[in-house]
Amino acid sequence: MSRYFTEDHEWIDVDGNNATVGITNYAQEQLGDVVFVEVPENGKELGKGDDAAVVESVKAASDVYAPVSGTVSEGNVALADDPSLINTDPEGEGWFFKLDLSDTSQLEGLMDEAAYKEFVASL
């Protein structure tokens, strides 16, 4: 399994055609206290860059984009009851949704962990 990162501060774990998407620790720090999360429904088809999920902190609403194209296989229902999972475990229990990838070649343009760290350090 490999983990990729986007410049929009999302992470994607990829195992074959299956991907899990969340936001990075840097992203949750920027958001602050998360009070509401809306994840996409199963079966929803998402193109790369489409609005996929909504995350609201005390101060602001933000979109989470589909980092690659695919069909939603599962949204993280635990976030409805406990949106603060985004703050406490953003790169684990606080995942947003799972995708069946439609075009794995889209992963090629994404960053690995080292490149993402460098990207964050440059901000």
Partner: peptide, 10 residues
């Protein structure tokens, strides 16, 4: 991810 709101973090 992108901010939709009015606070300017630039």
């Amino acid at each position: 991810m992108s901010d939709q709101n009015e606070l300017d973090d630039s």
